[in-house]
Design a protein around this nucleic acid. Structure first.
Lengths: 229, 229
DNA sequence: GCCTGTGAAGCTATTCACAGCT
DNA sequence: AGCTGTGAATAGCTTCACAGGC
C-alpha cells in the first residue's frame, strides 16, 4: 500500500462508515446551533427551523440526521437536547480527542490561542517546532517540544490527529513523521500536496487558495454588476 | 431580492461564468505548481505529470484546463510558461485585487502576517476593528481603521472582497456593512451563517469545524485499525 | 505512439415528493 | 394539517474512453 492520495481542497480519502464528508461538516455546525438553542431554552425544533438557522434546505437536515440515529416525530419535530446529545455522541464517541500542532509560527500561535480551552472534546496537547528556542516553552497552556520528540510525545499523549502549520517545504517531512507516529488525521495549512498512506485522513485548508477563490468570484460578480449599471 | 443563501462549508452561490467552484480551487493550486515548474526550468508538461504533482487524475487536469482557454498539444503537452500565464489571466484579470480584513484579533493578525507582501495580485489594503485603540495603527504594512470608517475606506480603496475574523456575534453586522459598501466576496472565519444578498459570494472557513471533521475521520480510522490489530 | 480535448457514462450529493404518523 | 423519514429523481462533478492530431 502507499499514497492513498486524492488530495486538494478537501478530502483525500474515500469515505468512512459511509457518512459523507460534507455531512460531517454540517453536523458539527448543527451541533453548535443546537447548543445555542438549548441555552436559549428551546425545547423542540423542526427541520425547517434548523434549516433556516444553518442556511440549508429542510430535506438536507433530515437526510443528514438519518446518520446520527436519532428520530424526531411529526408532533414536535426534534427534541433539542436529545438531538444535540445524539449529534455529540455521533461526532465524538470518545471522551476527549488529543491533537498536536506542528509549526509554531504566526498561524500556529493564532490557532493555539483560538482553541485554547474553547473546545470540550478537542484538546491540543502538544506543539512542535524545528526552532530549538521554542522547545520547552509553554504557549496558551500548550507545551512546545522539539521536532525530534514528535514520535515519542504523540504516542505518550495518545494524539490522534495533527494540525500542520509549517512552511510548504517541510510539510511532507512532517506528514511522514506524523504518519509514522500513528496519527490518523491531518489538518494541513501548508500549501503543499501531502502524500500519505490511505489510513491517514488529510484535510487541506490553504488560506491562499481560499482567498484566491473568493477574489475570483468577487471579481466576476463585480464585473457583471458593472455591466448591469 | 434577498438572502441568496446556500451556505455551509463552501459556496453560498449558484455558479459564475459556469466555472465550477472546485475547479477554481484547483486552478489556483495548479498555478502555484506551474510557477514552481517554470522556475525549475521545465519547458513543457503533460497532463499526467501535472496530475501527479497536484494529486488528481489527468482527466481532471484536462477538464479543468478547458475553462482557461489555453490548449496544449499532443507533441509537448502544455508549455509551462504559457499555461501558467493563461491560468493567471483567467484567475485574476485585474492588475491587483484589493481586500480588507475585519477583526484584528489573533487570527486576523496571523492572516495579515501570513499575507503581507506574499501575493502579487491579492493585497490587503485595510484592516478594521471595533477596538478604538487599534485604529490608526499599522500592522504588517496595513493600516487599521475604526469600524465606522468601513464603508468610506472600502469605496476609496476599491476593495472587492473581505476577510471576516471577528467573533461570531458580530459577523452578521460586519457582513451587512461590507455588503452595503459594495464588497462582492467574503471569506468568513467566524462560526456563523451569514445572510447576504445573492450578489455577494461567501466562503466559510470555520477552523473549529475543520478540526472536528479531521478528528471525526481520524477517530474512525483509528478504531478500524484497532479492530484490525 | 502517445498525447489532448471532449461526448458520454458513472458517481455522489442534494432535493423532491409522498407515504405514514400523530 | 403538518411534520418526519425515505425511495426516486435531479443536479453537479469526475472519470472513462476514444476520435483526432502530430
Amino acid at each position: 500500500m502507499r499514497i492513498g492520495q486524492r488530495v486538494m481542497g478537501t478530502s483525500q480519502m474515500p469515505r468512512t462508515q459511509g457518512t459523507p464528508d460534507r455531512t460531517i461538516e454540517r453536523l458539527s455546525f448543527y451541533r453548535r446551533l443546537l447548543r445555542a438553542e438549548s441555552e436559549k431554552g428551546t425545547k423542540n425544533i423542526y427541520s425547517h427551523q434548523l434549516a433556516a438557522l444553518a442556511g440549508v434546505t429542510p430535506a438536507q437536515i433530515r437526510r443528514d440526521l438519518t446518520y446520527v440515529g436519532y428520530s424526531g416525530n411529526p408532533q414536535h419535530g426534534y427534541l433539542v437536547d436529545q438531538l444535540r446529545d445524539a449529534v455529540e455522541r455521533y461526532l465524538s464517541p470518545r471522551r476527549q480527542v488529543h491533537l498536536a500542532l506542528v509549526g509554531v509560527g504566526n498561524l500556529g500561535r493564532a490557532i493555539l490561542a483560538y482553541f485554547s480551552g474553547r473546545h470540550r472534546k478537542l484538546v491540543i496537547r502538544a506543539a512542535f517546532d524545528s526552532d530549538p528556542n521554542k522547545a520547552g516553552r509553554v504557549l496558551q497552556g500548550c507545551r512546545c517540544y522539539p521536532m525530534e520528540a514528535l514520535e515519542e510525545v504523540v504516542r505518550r499523549e495518545d494524539i490522534v490527529a495533527a494540525i500542520i502549520t509549517v512552511p510548504a517545504g517541510e510539510a511532507q517531512k512532517v506528514a511522514d513523521s506524523l504518519s509514522a507516529a500513528g496519527v490518523k488525521g491531518i489538518l494541513n495549512f501548508a500549501p503543499a500536496t501531502l502524500r500519505v498512506g490511505g489510513d491517514v485522513y488529510v484535510e487541506n485548508k490553504d488560506l491562499t487558495m481560499a482567498m484566491e477563490k473568493v477574489a475570483f468570484f468577487a471579481q466576476a460578480r463585480q464585473e457583471t454588476s458593472e455591466v448591469a449599471s
